[in-house]
């Protein structure tokens, strides 16, 4: 499990049925690209978040493949449809096998 990895998500608390909402996500992760060298001149191996998914009540919103060119503390912003009340599930997959996730509930106003 990479150290100090913390997800952060911004989702409105309520929406009207059928609304479009903007979702912003950030996860604190070094995103070691595999290009850098340590003090002894050895390549520091790649270690990044390589995939992000967002699902709503089990249905997929977006599926992103991330490469080493994504900046440290990966930021992703996108829009989702809200057909009904429910849970947005956000999942990040780490090169080292760890999986980080967080869930945000949205109500219909």
């Amino acid at each position: 499990m990479a150290k100090g990895v913390k997800p952060r998500v911004k989702v409105p608390k309520t929406a009207a049925a059928g609304d479009t909402i903007t979702i912003k996500t950030l996860i604190s992760h070094k995103m070691e690209s595999g290009q850098r060298k340590d003090d002894d001149g050895n390549l520091i191996p790649r270690s990044i978040i390589n995939r992000f998914t967002c699902d709503f009540n089990g249905e997929n919103v977006i599926d992103v493949t991330l490469e080493p060119a994504i900046s440290t503390n990966p930021y992703l912003e996108f829009e989702a449809l809200v057909p009904e009340a429910g849970d947005f599930k956000f999942t990040w997959y780490d090169d080292d096998g760890s999986v980080y996730d967080t869930t945000k509930t949205i109500a219909i106003e």
Binding site: D55, N60, I62, D63, V64, E67, F78, E79, A80, L81
Partner: peptide, 11 residues
């Protein structure tokens, strides 16, 4: 850099 795949609920 990245590949974005849009699902059914992508607005």
């Amino acid at each position: 850099v990245a590949t974005f795949k849009f699902g059914k609920l992508a607005a």
